[in-house]
Amino acid sequence: MSIAVRALQHGFGEGEARKQALFDVDLDIHAGELTVLMGASGSGKTTLLTLLGCLRSVQQGQVALLGQELLHADDATLVRMRRRLGFIFQAHNLHDSLTALQNVRLGLEVHGGDAARQWQPADEHLLGLLGLAERLHYLPSQLSGGQKQRVAIARALVGNPDLVFADEPTAALDRDSALQAVHLLKALARERDTTVLMVTHDSKVIDLADRIVTMEQGRLVDDRRPAARL
């Protein structure tokens, strides 16, 4: 089990101003699968994603991530766990002064210089898989919005993370690019036994999920597997 969540609750603010964002969430997520998390704006999707991704501290409940309990985890533990994760956000967050290839290599910095040298061919390979082989040395200002997002996806995947958390990763992509990116995420899950959790409303890619979990007002309300396509 990559992720095991029990009775997870989370809120923002203090006292009478406190707003509850998550209510008694129970969820198990398995390695080797692409799980899609759906729900309206404000349903708690991003809050859940940031808690599982060690970007926020767990307040109440149990979250076991790759066997590590996150409740009461100290900062050093959260940093160590984040090094095993890949993150893809709707905002690409590329460095304007670095080329596409250099931006992808930033994904290896947390693993040290030896890892960066070892994985040097992987940078170009991933960008090639995402249709950017001719733009390795382009700056972000020379790329379209969809191309920037594909660079961000490559940066998240280059270090072979154990888990990938993706928040609306295909929002800026056209249909073909979106399908290409999600097929890559799904192949990564299956071939490397990686866990992929993706928040999306994108109807173009939902059917590619192994599992679809839906949230409403901070609660899980549906958990299903799409019917196998012929």
Score class of each variant (00 low, 15 high):
Leu52Asp: 02
Leu55Glu: 05
Arg56Cys: 10
Gln59Phe: 02
Gly61Lys: 01
Gln62Ile: 07
Val63Gln: 01
Ala64Ile: 09
Leu66Tyr: 11
Gly67Cys: 01
Leu70Phe: 00
His72Glu: 14
His72Leu: 12
Asp74Trp: 11
Asp75Glu: 14
Arg80Ser: 15
Arg84Ser: 03
Leu85Lys: 00
Leu85Cys: 05
Asp96Lys: 14
Ala100Lys: 06
Gln102Asn: 13
Val104Cys: 12
Leu106Phe: 15
Leu106Pro: 09
Gly107Lys: 06
Gly107Met: 08
Gly112Ser: 05
Gly112Ala: 10
Gly112Lys: 04
Ala116Asp: 12
Gln118Tyr: 14
Gln120Ile: 12
Ala122Ser: 12
Ala122Asp: 15
Glu124Ile: 11
Gly128Trp: 11
Leu132Val: 12
Leu136Ala: 04
Leu136Met: 02
Leu139Pro: 07
Leu139Glu: 11
Leu139Val: 07
Ser141Thr: 13
Leu143Arg: 02
Leu143Thr: 01
Gly146Asn: 13
Gln147Gly: 11
Gln147Pro: 08
Gln149Thr: 05
Arg150Gln: 01
Ala154Asn: 11
Arg155Val: 01
Ala156Arg: 04
Leu157Ile: 01
Asn160Gln: 14
Asn160His: 12
Asn160Thr: 10
Leu163Ala: 10
Val164Pro: 01
Asp167Gln: 07
Ala172Gly: 13
Leu179Ile: 08
Gln180Thr: 07
Ala181Glu: 00
Ala181Gln: 01
Val182Ser: 05
